[in-house]
């Protein structure tokens, strides 16, 4: 996408608006989308982890940042914008719904 030529400076100066949009989209996906998935994973882990409540909450929060990191790397490795965004929204959404449905189980002591 970025390598489209623009005259004689084609080797190094092809910073088109589309390229800038692509960079902005990936960075937003990595930060906002990554946060969404991390948040959802913390919620779901608080429900499923096999330990006492306060330990579940703290452990889930600590692990969610690892999830965020992995997701953000995946976002930049994705081949196109569609493949970058849909797993984020689907994965985050499914985890959030599951955590919400089983939220009473998540409150066990």
């Amino acid at each position: 996408m970025s390598e489209t030529s623009s005259g004689h400076l084609k080797r190094r100066t092809a910073v088109t608006p589309i390229y800038r949009l692509a960079v902005a989209s990936r960075i937003i996906a990595a930060l906002v989308g990554g946060y969404l998935v991390a948040y959802a994973s913390a919620a779901l882990l608080t429900v499923v982890l096999p330990m006492s409540r306060i330990n579940r909450v703290v452990t889930a929060s600590l692990l969610s940042f690892v999830v965020w990191t992995v997701v953000a790397i995946g976002v930049f490795a994705a081949r196109n914008a569609w493949r970058c965004w849909w797993p984020l929204l689907a994965g985050g959404g499914v985890m959030l719904v599951l955590a919400f449905v089983f939220r009473n189980y998540g409150m066990r002591p």
């Binding site: 991390a38 948040y39 913390a42 919620a43 579940r56 909450v57 929060s61 940042f65 955590a99 409150m107």
Partner: peptide, 16 residues
Amino acid sequence: IIMMSSYMTAGVQIGY
């Protein structure tokens, strides 16, 4: 993670 209770509140939302 030091400031996680400021911005990663999902666990507290579900657990408490």
